[in-house]
C-alpha cells in the first residue's frame, strides 16, 4: 500500500529536461536563440525568436555576444543549432535580397522608424543622416537619427553602414568602427574614396543635364548618366535655380 503511494509521490519529483523553460520562452517570443554564422563578413553572431532576427554582432566569443545581448535586449538567450533556413536568409540579406524579418520590440517608435527607413536604402548606395530624418518626418532630429543608428541591434542586416555624413566623413559605426564601415560599403560596390572626395569639395548631388534631374551620387538611377552630361551640385537651392528637380527614386529633397 505505502510502497505504491511513495512511488507515485516520487513520480511528482520528476524534473523537466534542461533548457525546458528557455524553450517555452522562445516559443512565446519571450526569449531568443542564437548561433554563429559564417558569412561574407566573417563570423557573425545572430539572435532570433519567433518574430524574427533580434540582434547581430561580430563578436570574439559567444560569451561576449551573450553579455552584449543581455545589456542591449535583456531577454533570456540560449544557444541553438544554426538553422539552415536562417543561414539562407542571412546570405540573401548580405547579397541585397530582402527576405529577413526583424524583431524590433523594445525599441522606441522613433528608433523603429529610423531602422525601417534605413532598411530601404539599397545595397551599393548611401544616404545622409538628414535624409533618414526627413523621410520619417522628423527633419530636425538628425542627431537622434545618428544615436538610433549607433544603437542598431541588427547591424549588417539593417544597413546602418549605408547612412553617412554629408561632409565626407564616413561617420562612426557600431559594427566595428569607421574602417569596418568603409570595408562593408566597398564590398557592396560603393566607391567610398570618390564619394569622400566629392563631399570634401562640397558636392552633395549629381545632376544630369539632359534629364534635369538631380540625385544623391550613389543613386542607382544616377549611375546610368553619361559622364559628359553630369554636373555636380552643391545644394538644393542652386540645383533648383539651375532648373533641376529632385530624383523620385532617391528623393534628395524629400
Amino acid at each position: 500500500m505505502t510502497a505504491l503511494l511513495t512511488d507515485l509521490k516520487r513520480l511528482g519529483s520528476m524534473k523537466a529536461p534542461d533548457g525546458f523553460a528557455e524553450r517555452v520562452l522562445v516559443e512565446v517570443g519571450m526569449a531568443d536563440s542564437y548561433a554563429v554564422f559564417e558569412t561574407v563578413l566573417g563570423e557573425v553572431y545572430v539572435a532570433w525568436n519567433r518574430f524574427g532576427v533580434s540582434a547581430a554582432a561580430r563578436c570574439a566569443s559567444a560569451s561576449e555576444f551573450e553579455t552584449m545581448f543581455k545589456r542591449e535586449v535583456g531577454r533570456p538567450l540560449t544557444p541553438a543549432p544554426a538553422a539552415a533556413e536562417l543561414a539562407a536568409k542571412i546570405e540573401d540579406e548580405l547579397s541585397g535580397k530582402r527576405t529577413m524579418r526583424f524583431d524590433l520590440r523594445g525599441l522606441t517608435e522613433f528608433e523603429q522608424a529610423v531602422l525601417r527607413k534605413t532598411y530601404e536604402i539599397p545595397r551599393g548606395e548611401v544616404r545622409p543622416y538628414g535624409w533618414v530624418a526627413k523621410e520619417i518626418r522628423r527633419p530636425a532630429a538628425v542627431r537622434a537619427v545618428g544615436t538610433a543608428l549607433a544603437n542598431n541591434p541588427i547591424p549588417y542586416f539593417i544597413p546602418c553602414h549605408r547612412v553617412v555624413r554629408t561632409d565626407g566623413h564616413i561617420g562612426n559605426y557600431g559594427g566595428g568602427g569607421p574602417e569596418a564601415k568603409k570595408a562593408i560599403l566597398t564590398m557592396e560596390g560603393v566607391r567610398v574614396n570618390r564619394l569622400q572626395e566629392l563631399a570634401r569639395g562640397g558636392v552633395r548631388y549629381q545632376g544630369v543635364k539632359t534629364t534635369k534631374i538631380y540625385c544623391y551620387p550613389t543613386c542607382h538611377a544616377a549611375q546610368r548618366a553619361l559622364e559628359k552630361n553630369v554636373v555636380w551640385l552643391h545644394d538644393e537651392k542652386s540645383a533648383r535655380a539651375a532648373g533641376f528637380r529632385p530624383c523620385k527614386v532617391c528623393r534628395p529633397a524629400a
Binding site: L11, G12, M14, P17, F20, A21, L25, M30
Partner: peptide, 18 residues
C-alpha cells in the same frame, strides 16, 4: 509568465509524464 514557467516547469512536466 517567465517567473511562472521557471517556478512550475518541473511540476507541469511531471504531470505530463504521469
Amino acid at each position: 509568465f517567465e517567473r511562472m514557467v521557471r517556478e512550475h516547469q518541473h511540476r507541469v512536466y511531471a504531470v505530463g509524464f504521469a
